Simulated assay, not measured.
Amino acid sequence: MRPPDGTAADQFQPLRPGLVRLAYRMLGSIAEAEDVVQEAYIRWHQADRSSVREPGAFLSKTVTRLCLDILKSARVKRETYIGPWLPEPVLDQDQEDAMSEDLSLTLMMALERLSPLERAAFLLHDVFGLGFDEVSATLDRDPAACRQLAARARKNVRADRPRYAIDREEGERMTDAFFAASRSGDVTALRTLLAENVVAYTDGGGIRNAALNPLFGLRRVAGLFLGIARKTGGGRPPILYRGLINGLPGIVTLEPDGLVQTTTLDIEDGRIVGVYIVRNPEKLGHLSGLAS
């Protein structure tokens, strides 16, 4: 068999962005995804590449298996995580490389409820378009079992798929209105923006102040922001970024403690049904450059 053209690096680099996206969607962590892809590159460099028919398939398989190993230990860590766990936020600044609307923050959270094998089968087949023969080779399960894994995953995440694409201008308008109302404690304005069944998640990781449980319902969510406004005097921190975050409208702010924070909104039928706030500094290090 003729070996692939080019050096290991030349063959690897065009595939790297897709491998990072796969690893991030498996793990919900930018740092861990980068580490996995770097390990996959080392293994690619050491492999007998002349025997590899499809470099992309080889590397996707390697990345997936590395992620599955990490997820086994991640399950234990998540059980002891303080407060709600949210995936690390990714800014969709490059429209050609934006996170798919089909993998918004809400769907990333739905993936968290799946077993590692269900998540892998769903991502590889439904999102990245691999056939079940390829999924089977990656997961060391027969194709029928992989179909069942993907079907169970699909059923569990179906309700969390975006019903429609959020208009960018509408998203920015709602984000600006929510920022003004939540930071000033304007309950009247919040009542016009929030759906009755709204839910708010705040991820501080036990490092920064955050609600220890999700808050359900308009009254409790509005009360959260009223309390914050009273404590902070109603001031508005600088906005460092406004746009899509994990496929949903959101902002990055520089908070009074000198650290960044992301706020992302899930909007349906003109009302906010989900508020997702990441405050854990261990998940925001890749955004610290926005403050410089």
Rank of each mutant, 00 (worst) to 15 (best):
251 I>L: 11
52 V>A: 07
128 F>H: 11
117 L>K: 06
97 D>Y: 03
172 E>K: 11
115 S>R: 13
287 L>E: 06
183 R>V: 05
31 A>T: 09
216 F>Y: 14
153 A>K: 05
164 Y>S: 13
44 W>G: 00
54 E>F: 13
152 R>M: 11
239 I>N: 01
147 R>P: 05
243 G>R: 04
203 D>V: 04
141 R>V: 02
158 R>W: 14
290 L>C: 03
126 D>F: 10
194 L>E: 04
268 E>T: 12
242 R>H: 13
220 R>C: 00
272 I>W: 09
91 L>N: 06
15 L>M: 13
253 T>C: 06
32 E>K: 10
189 A>T: 10
130 L>F: 15
205 G>D: 11
271 R>K: 15
192 T>D: 14
13 Q>E: 15
145 A>T: 14
271 R>W: 13
44 W>T: 02
112 E>F: 08
141 R>E: 15
240 L>G: 09
9 A>I: 05
37 V>W: 08
110 A>R: 04
27 L>R: 10
129 G>M: 06
210 A>D: 07
63 V>Q: 00
90 V>P: 02
102 D>I: 00
233 G>P: 14
244 L>T: 07
247 G>C: 08
261 Q>I: 01
33 A>D: 07
21 R>P: 04
3 P>Y: 03
154 R>A: 15
10 D>N: 01
241 Y>P: 03
195 A>Y: 07
122 F>S: 00
62 T>K: 03
204 G>Y: 12
246 N>Q: 14
21 R>I: 01
282 E>A: 04
142 D>T: 03
178 F>W: 14
42 I>S: 13
5 D>E: 13
223 G>D: 13
181 A>D: 08
4 P>E: 02
151 A>N: 05
108 M>T: 02
27 L>M: 15
249 P>T: 06
178 F>K: 07
242 R>Y: 00
106 T>W: 07
180 A>T: 02
76 V>E: 14
38 Q>A: 13
